[in-house]
């Protein structure tokens, strides 16, 4: 079972604490990291993916990530960044999604590619895609390697209804395969669609609330600068 454990995780930039003394455990299933803009969600995912320096311990699948090299880490952890356009490295969508497969000399999981990326996009230049198409390609270009751990940073941004449905299918598919999926979100609505197992709320780099999804309450969300389901329902009732 792919487990993520962070003990006393602290990240500082120029003496400013971005994450402070985080202790978390994520097991197989879907886990949501909530928090306002700048709360530390992206930094938490990047630390787990071994992309930044940190103080404390992060163990993935029982292994200390500081002892894993870049290739080992990328076979174990899939990290999908926030702005899809910033991470494109190839001249066509086909080359973009095949890049990770060629690096690791693996065949990957074509179901993920087929669900996320429509066939007609394969010959396009990734930077010429629309926001939603770019998001789908960006996600597929990493998840296709079928890593046991998925870290998705705001994955729903720019997606239309079809894109949201495709992504939810993939996340459910990943859950069925026993993956540990951590999703950073600030839009609570998508979390309800995903029916996650657990959640944590970050505020100013600290975990201010955690629990199972059924326990989540509007007051916690409100205090952490997030839109609540109550806000959404009230708007809908008054329209």
């Amino acid at each position: 079972m792919p487990r993520i454990e962070a003990r006393n995780l602290t990240v500082k930039y120029n003496e400013k604490y971005i994450l402070r003394d985080i202790n978390i455990v994520f097991d197989s299933g879907i886990h949501i990291v909530l928090g306002r803009n700048g709360a530390g969600k992206t930094t938490l995912l990047r630390a787990i993916a071994g992309l930044i320096n940190f103080i404390g311990d992060i163990r993935v699948d029982g292994k200390d990530i500081k002892n894993l090299n870049r290739r080992e880490l990328s076979r174990l952890i899939a990290y999908c960044w926030q702005n899809p356009f910033y991470g494109f490295i190839e001249a066509s969508v086909k080359d973009e999604v095949e890049a990770i497969l060629k690096i690791h000399k693996i065949s990957g999981d074509s179901h993920i590619l087929n669900t996320l990326v429509p066939r007609h996009l394969m010959d396009r230049d990734p930077t010429s895609l629309s926001g939603g198409e770019a998001r789908r390609v960006s996600l597929a270009s990493i998840l296709i390697a079928d890593q046991p751990i998925w870290l998705l940073d705001e994955p729903f941004t720019n997606l239309d209804r079809e894109g949201v449905e495709a992504l939810i299918k993939i996340v459910e598919y990943g859950k069925e395969k026993g993956k540990t999926i951590v999703i950073a979100l600030h839009e609570i609505f998508y979390a309800y669609l995903l029916k996650p197992n657990t959640y944590i709320v970050l505020n100013h780099g600290e975990v201010v609330k955690r629990g199972t999804w059924s326990d989540i309450d509007d007051e916690t969300l409100l205090n952490s600068g997030l839109i609540t389901m109550g806000d959404i329902c009230a708007k809908l009732c008054n329209r």
Binding site: A49, R71, G87, A99, S141
Partner: peptide, 17 residues
């Protein structure tokens, strides 16, 4: 400068250090 961080992340998560 604004893109280099994400590009480096994008290479690293694919296994290129």
């Amino acid at each position: 400068l604004s893109r280099i961080d994400v590009l480096i992340d994008s290479l690293k998560v694919r296994g290129i250090d």
